[in-house]
Design a protein around this nucleic acid. Structure first.
Lengths: 141, 141
DNA sequence: ATTTTTATTGAAAATCTTTTTCATTGTAAA
DNA sequence: TTTACAATGAAAAAGATTTTCAATAAAAAT
């Protein structure tokens, strides 16, 4: 949502502010579902037709590096991105419309503890994603 | 591990038993880390040099369809597969050597319940993956 | 304001991965 | 055996992503 925040973040990290980047950022920030690079390209070109696909790839790369967006993994593919508003969050995706909502799962610690005990592994990172139907898509068949 | 079981499963589902399929199945069944199609190809060709990459793709597709293998999602890519021994399981991956172990997380139900309440979504499926270091890789820097 | 420096851009080409096509081969059923 | 047709591998096609490069534009220096 906060397109301006992202632009500022890019600038603060030594990246220049360009019309192309602005178009990409505004597109991703305004969309509440995961978008592939090609989808970003098509949407962003509506407001900035000169945009090149390469720039979309490069901008998404930087946004991911700054943790402003995160990759969404789905059975069909894993090249879609969505705004990663606040820190580490888990995803709940609607299988029909693609709408994504975030939630945090604080109570995973007990499980992790058990797995660490049993396996001898150290745990550095985790992914949790749920798939289902959003309220709207439950009613429309 | 049970290469023969997989071959039987393929046969029972109307697929023919060929030397190429055997080579792919044995390779995946014998490996305890996720393999990409290309890695399967290279490994399987050691014992069956006539194997074509296309057949690897096609065989992996069938094994996945029969739930004998499952896709492993990692930051670097999501085209790797690993044996899916028993039903739905969660993954714990070593970031250094790639070794994968499975665990089940029965106590996620409370979390799911809360998310269902809060979001209004129905939940059909979930993915949980942990990343860390296996005991061996913790000591070798 | 103007100039200078240099990151960024988009088009085209190159790379990689995956899928399709198709004539040939090999498996399983008759 | 013979027959039917699923499965194969090579080559081509299709897609996705990355690299190259000359031109451009943003920010810094003047």
């Amino acid at each position: 949502m906060p397109a301006q925040t992202w632009l500022t973040a890019l600038q603060e990290n030594g990246y220049r502010l360009t019309a192309s980047r602005r178009a990409v950022v505004e597109t991703v920030a305004a969309t509440h579902r995961a978008l592939t690079p090609l989808e970003v390209f098509d949407l962003a070109r509506e407001s900035h037709p000169e945009l090149g696909l390469v720039t979309v790839y490069r901008t998404l790369e930087k946004l991911e590096e700054l943790h402003l967006i995160q990759r969404v993994h789905q059975p069909h593919g894993c090249q879609a991105f969505i705004s990663a508003s606040q820190g580490h969050q888990h995803l709940l995706l609607c299988r029909k419309c693609g709408q994504v909502i975030f939630f945090d799962g604080d109570n995973l610690d007990g499980l992790f503890e058990r797995v660490i005990q049993d396996s001898g592994y150290t745990i550095q990172e985790h992914w949790l994603q749920l798939f289902g139907l959003c309220p709207a898509c439950q009613t429309t068949p």
